[in-house]
Amino acid sequence: MDKESDQPLKIIILGAGKGGTALIDLLARERDCVEVVGVADTNPRAPGLCLARKLNIPTASSAAELIGKNGADLIVDVTGDATIAAQIAEGKSPETETMSGTTARLLWMLVREEQELRAQLTQADKLATLGTFAAQIAHDLKNPLYCIREFAQFIEEEHDSDRIKEYSQEILKADQYLTSIVDGLTAYTRSTCSEPESIRLPELLDQAVKMSRFATTSNAVEVVCDYQPVPPIRADASEMLQIFVNIITNAVQAMNGQGRLMLGVKVEEEKVVISIRDTGPGISAALLPKIFTPFFTTKERGVGTGLGLSIVQTLVKKYGGEIEVESEEGKGAAFTIRFPLPG
């Protein structure tokens, strides 16, 4: 498996159940050093096969179809099927190594552990972000609560039925507003273990803007949207929301709550392209290469964990996407995310 060149290691995964899926998920994020060249499972609905298709990884319905594939450096067998080992031994190219049985189980355990830690970290970042929103959330909850209390008192004192009706409608309006805040918070804090769903990016971007409003006490951010028609993408809505909330919150905080936020979605060169730009102070050339590094932050203690953009990058890669940032000091920052066009 020792390669002289800088070529990524080519890996075949046999078995696309839980273990195989977790392995594909992990390796897909390390595309610079690892390339999954094929995934096989006899069950056409195996979750790993679905994930592989989404990531444009070739799939097969039997191990035999992949075992003899030329150029693979390693076959990882997580089928748990003893007969597969014999098939591999018989059919594989001499230069291809194998990992199966106990070693594959050990690998699966480590991958599962990594997966759990990553999920915990992602959730922790979400809750930490939410913590910084607390003052503003309290503010936004207090206003409708105040209105409900006062309108209820007005009703108690009122005899005119038209006015009573008018005040009741105001209470319902305040209730709707409260519900929308709570629904937004619930969607954002939901654990990311849900099934992928069909996501309309403009709606999710708008939802992220609403959440990110909590990041500032100012109310002077002008939001300019250029949403061109794009097909819905399949992803975990909570994870997608976390990507956008993180970037937009950074933008709003960088602008100190005053400036212009420009959001765009379009299809370009077979990719769904999402752009998020701000008119903040920008990022210096010295800091730019570090922004996706875990625990790197320019925010004050207690404001940022330094995990946000690192998690954003991980989540973008998980969906086969890429993220890049362009910025110059004094000229704002522009983040561009590209996801493969859904097939």
Partner: peptide, 12 residues
């Protein structure tokens, strides 16, 4: 900026 607040305060 919130219409409901203006209405509440105005009515009070």
């Amino acid at each position: 900026d919130e219409e409901q607040i203006r209405k509440v305060v105005g009515t009070v």
